[in-house]
Simulated scan of single mutants.
Amino acid sequence: MSEYEILRIQLLKTLVQMEEQLLVSIGKEKFQSNTTADSGDGNSTLQQAELQMKVVFSVSELSNYLGVSTDCIYTMVRENQIPFVRVRRRIIFYRDSINSWIHTNTPYPK
């Protein structure tokens, strides 16, 4: 084996270990905290994992979760097309309500 191949294998092992540590830390955060603060670290995979664990979404979090713009979310809220809760001026969405809304509004192939 060449030195390049050995370094490549070591790098892959390190990456796998780092990914496992990240998944473990995400699992710990899930049970230790129920906060809804954004992480802002820029890692889209990590952000998606955090969104999957959240119970309540803000408008921007829901737009990331659904893959649509915030303008689209505000329009659906204004037209009562999506389940939401208004707390004073803040609009929040429960993940379970959104998931059931998705399942009831998704056309199934015949």
Rank of each mutant, 00 (worst) to 15 (best):
D41N: 12
L46G: 00
Q21Y: 03
N34F: 14
Q17N: 11
G40S: 07
G27V: 00
L15D: 02
P109M: 00
L23P: 00
S33A: 14
T36W: 01
K110L: 05
T36Y: 02
M76W: 15
I91Q: 04
I92F: 05
I91A: 01
I98Y: 11
L51F: 07
M1I: 01
Y94L: 15
W101A: 03
S60W: 00
E20F: 01
R95L: 00
L15Q: 07
T70K: 09
I92T: 09
G42D: 04
G42W: 05
V59P: 00
Y94E: 15
L51P: 09
M53W: 00
I73N: 04
M53N: 14
Q32Y: 07
E3R: 15
T35C: 14
Y94R: 15
V59L: 00
N105P: 03
R89H: 01
L22R: 13
G40E: 09
L66T: 01
A49C: 10
T70I: 12
Q48D: 10
Q47N: 13
P83D: 06
Q52K: 13
M18N: 10
Q52F: 08
E5S: 09
V16L: 10
Q47G: 06
E50V: 09
V24M: 03
E29D: 11
N80M: 05
P107N: 03
E20I: 09
G67K: 10
Q47R: 13
R78A: 03
G27M: 08
S2T: 14
P107D: 01
E5T: 11
I9Q: 07
R89G: 04
I73A: 04
D41K: 03
V56F: 14
G40C: 10
N43E: 11
R88A: 13
T35R: 15
A37G: 09
K110P: 01
E29H: 13
F57C: 05
Q21K: 15
K13C: 09
T45A: 04
I73S: 04
S100Q: 13
I73W: 06
T36L: 11
E5L: 10
T14Y: 12
Y4V: 04
N105R: 07
V68T: 09
E29V: 07
E29K: 11
G27F: 01
L23C: 05
S60A: 12
Y74N: 09
R78H: 05
Q47M: 08
I9N: 04
K30S: 07
F93D: 07
F31L: 06
R88G: 15
T14N: 14
L23R: 14
